[in-house]
Design a protein around this nucleic acid. Structure first.
Lengths: 233, 233
DNA sequence: GCAAAAGTGTTGACCTTACACCCATGA
DNA sequence: TCATGGGTGTAAGGTCAACACTTTTGC
């Protein structure tokens, strides 16, 4: 056979908005799930969960399986393909062509993780393995873009939440603050939120109780079609 | 080895806006490059150009090479990754994982094609091989979306053109008519067009001569950032 | 002058941010 | 009643599609 052995692998950048203990008493941040390599090559660097695609599964099934098996993350609320990393020399040894994924986990779930695995602030990544740092950056860019024109935040938000909590999630994921007023108006007009009827108890210092919302849909939906050159209507 | 033999291939949906002789004297249409399979499986159906990724090339290089070798198309003005098609049973026999691409060719070039290869209206595709029809639909959707918020039309337009010609290209690619007035205004404000200084001669029946334009950039650029939830400032 | 094609101005609708203002609660 | 946080109203600015209007040409 004239071709050398080539492996196809899946790699997932799984994001969650969470309070990282490194920044004590700080605000929640966008975090990504990484495990630390115990062996060469690149021993000690931090890698994304993933691995070889099996014969009987497609790449999305593979990515879900790797997350369940290797880092015990079963409740991924959203998973979508990014691009393929295929530089012949992207990893040493046997060639590996990697299909990248963006995964999201709700802010409230706290999966039990293996000892070599932990959450890391996307804003301050540790040394990453191979091209995994580029992959994380691409995943973050995709997330930020889709927050603007889809309901993708359902993947990061808890089942029910207040507008303030949702605002914190947007702030962490986008990297800048958003106006709570306008966030509510935008999401309301697009009908992505539904009030549950309940209200959250006010904090210790009082304040008006916040109404609680949930996302109307629990799968990705484009809520703001192209700005320009719309079909005539 | 516990894994069966798996091939990674690239597949490209190459689009061009062109006058198809099937619809005589009609307007130009969006066309895709297909070749007819001479052998089983699926003999007689129409397939996208592509093939096995070599050991020393990444998938984009592979896609360009396949286009040059198999259908003699060397001047692809734009090429970008779509998604991966990885269903274990997407083709019979040896497993093939396919990286899909969207390619664009300017309206004026007319590459010499092998005898088994020809352009087909995207609106009326012949029977397609395997999952290639889905791939073409995905490519078209990506093109239509990006026409709205990027300068991707540079890939379909000739080097210089009038606004009327450009309008025809948008109409063909989007599938609906666009207002020439507004097209000009949108593209002007985003500074994607530059006047060449020349004008086109009027048609046989007279008319004001049209000024000629070219695209300012010849690579993809996002010209209309997210509508909502912009950074403050 | 007239038809035809190119290009400009204007209007009304919609969406956005920013900010002032009102509402509900605990202390 | 006062501070605190939740929620609403409104004004200013930008972009859009639609269409009337002006400009420039060939006949």
């Amino acid at each position: 056979m004239p071709y050398r052995s080539t492996v196809h692998e899946s790699l997932a950048a799984v994001f969650q908005v969470r309070q990282l203990r490194t920044t004590s008493a700080g605000r929640p941040e966008l975090a990504v799930l990484l495990w630390q390599r115990a062996l060469d090559p690149e021993r000690g660097t931090w890698a994304l969960p993933g691995g070889r695609v099996c014969d009987d599964e497609d790449i999305e099934t593979s990515a879900r399986r790797q997350l369940a098996e290797k880092v015990d993350v079963c409740e991924v609320s959203h998973l979508e393909q990014l691009s393929v990393f295929s530089d012949p020399d992207r990893v040493p040894g046997e060639r590996r062509i990697a299909s990248a994924f963006l995964g999201l986990v709700p802010a409230t779930t706290d999966p039990r993780l293996p000892t070599d695995t932990s959450w890391h602030s996307v804003a301050a990544l540790p040394p990453t393995s191979f091209d995994h740092g580029v992959l994380v950056a691409e995943a973050r860019a995709r997330l930020a873009a889709k927050l603007s024109y889809t309901n993708i935040a359902f993947g990061l938000a808890p089942p029910v939440f207040t507008m303030s909590e949702l605002r914190e999630i947007y702030r962490a994921a986008l990297g800048y603050d958003v106006d709570s007023t306008n966030l509510q108006r935008v999401l309301n007009r697009r009908k992505v939120l539904s009030p549950t009827g309940d209200t959250a108890p006010p904090g210790p210092t009082g304040g008006r109780p916040a109404t609680m919302y949930r996302f109307t849909d629990s799968s990705l939906r484009v809520t703001d079609e192209f700005a320009a050159l719309r079909p005539p209507g």
